[in-house]
């Protein structure tokens, strides 16, 4: 049954790793701006080379 010592220790270590990851993420400023990245990910990586002119409104 003493396996419980190992298992609980492991689980705590894993949780602590997540905590550290979270703190580092906050520190790097990832959560300071919660809007722009959501827009940025939708942009095309490359510029559209073909000049297909949009129709006039």
């Amino acid at each position: 049954m003493s396996v419980i010592y190992i298992l609980i220790s492991i689980s705590i270590v894993v949780a602590a790793c997540f905590l550290i990851a979270f703190i580092r993420a906050v520190k790097s400023g990832q959560f300071d701006d919660d809007y722009t990245p959501s827009v940025r990910m939708l942009f095309e990586d490359e510029l559209v080379k073909t000049k297909n002119k949009p129709k006039q409104k």
Partner: peptide
């Protein structure tokens, strides 16, 4: 300096 200590505190408390 941006003060992020509240977030850290919450993170630790949640853990």
């Amino acid at each position: 300096k941006i003060d992020r200590s509240l977030i850290y505190r919450i993170g630790v408390a949640f853990f």
